[in-house]
Design a protein around this nucleic acid. Structure first.
Lengths: 229, 229
DNA sequence: ACCTGAACACCGTTCAAGT
DNA sequence: ACCTGAACACCGTTCAAGT
């Protein structure tokens, strides 16, 4: 019935890896704000201050946890068609950020890329280079694709009301805002009522449209580059 | 020489607007982490607890401040060519997030859109609709453009080392990581050394490439839609 | 009606002390 | 070498009290 020990994992030597895995689990349960040094210590059966023997500070823990998340993204493997490879890694990245929604906030605040991020960059650039993209065009492609992927994940999270019920509430709120403030939002209203609230619609579907648009544009740009040479 | 009053603004009645403007200024000076109820009170010459008479809690302040930032984005005005209008608002949005870099973090955490956000959505969708985009295609276009804009702003912030000096440091770190861990990052190394470190390169330049790629793709999609009808 | 002071339940981190 | 306890300087928020 000991109050502290029952939460703790069977006591074994602490290590940076064990701390980071516990931090990841904690964030998955309660978001980044649940990830405090004190709670992390508690989960590991240790005082918060002991963690500083294994990792320099909380920033290092956040960096490490983000790298664990990035490591979950499927990398393009050599030999695959470049478009299919980019599709797969884009979808995989999106899934990872749905699985760990709190990680988007870390993407924004952390500036030190970890090893997993570097490997991810390398794999993507490599895939493009082997498909005939020049260095300059590969840099272009990387920037536009990754911007789209992260930006989409960010927006998708903001719109994470569960289905039409809550979207309906938003529409009602919106209607109220329009009326009360004397502001008119006709186009937004139309789009919500006539499209977004309809049964078949899900914002998630917009992902594939944007992805194909960008991949087609990149293919065209690469081919134009080839002809110019 | 009074220690508290010299910081405070000339005392006038508090209002939600005055609180939000002060919060914006505070965030611009020291980032979101500098924006605490206590410091905000101090700047306004008032105890932190008084703020609760004007705004329900800190979340409301964050929502309000984000809406002030979004309100700074130039909206497309009717009558402009749609592509030029989208270019202008995309560039404007990017500039706003460079001016208020801390605001990207709020974009991620806040889910209640304010009036400025709603107006922004309405103006963008309206511009597309008037240019002949169907409702469905306007929703597609909105999703891909905004994902790109926000995602680019997010990445740009992560890469905000001032010029080649710091990028060089990153390259050195990277080299070290590659050697020490026995990991090879040939494509990333090549791209950094042969392209990103060269004098003319700036990640910011990638914005225009991505923007034009997406706008061209959208034009094509709209035209194809018109032909199908 | 508006503002304050003290308090509560939290943070990350330092540092001397324990084993 | 590793972990702890107490402490410091912070948080957001509540609540009774002052004017």
């Amino acid at each position: 019935m000991a109050k502290k020990k029952e939460v703790s994992v069977a006591r074994e030597r602490l290590s940076p890896e064990r701390v980071l895995r516990a931090a990841l689990a904690l964030a998955d349960e309660g978001g980044v704000e649940a990830l405090s040094m004190r709670k992390l210590g508690q989960v590991l059966g240790v005082e918060a201050m002991s963690l500083y023997k294994h990792l320099p500070n909380k920033d290092a823990i956040l960096d490490g946890v983000l790298d664990l998340v990035v490591a979950e993204i499927d990398l393009p493997v050599p030999g695959q068609d470049w478009k299919e490879a980019m599709r797969r890694r884009a979808r995989s990245a999106r899934e990872v950020f749905i699985r760990h929604p709190w990680a988007m906030a870390l993407m924004e605040s952390r500036t030190q890329p970890g090893l997993a991020s570097l490997r991810y960059y390398d794999a993507v650039i490599g895939c493009l280079r082997r498909a005939g993209f020049s260095i300059v065009m590969a840099a272009h492609a990387f920037a536009v694709l990754d911007s789209f992927i992260y930006g989409f994940a960010l927006q998708e999270q903001k719109m994470s009301f569960e289905g039409a019920a809550e979207l309906g509430d938003v529409a009602v709120d919106l209607q109220a805002q329009m009326q009360s403030a004397g502001h008119d939002l006709p186009y937004l209203g139309e789009l919500i009522v006539e499209h977004a609230l309809k049964p078949g619609y899900a914002f998630a579907n917009e992902f594939e449209f944007g992805l194909e648009l960008i991949l087609d544009g990149l293919e065209r740009a690469r081919d134009a580059e080839g002809q110019a040479a």
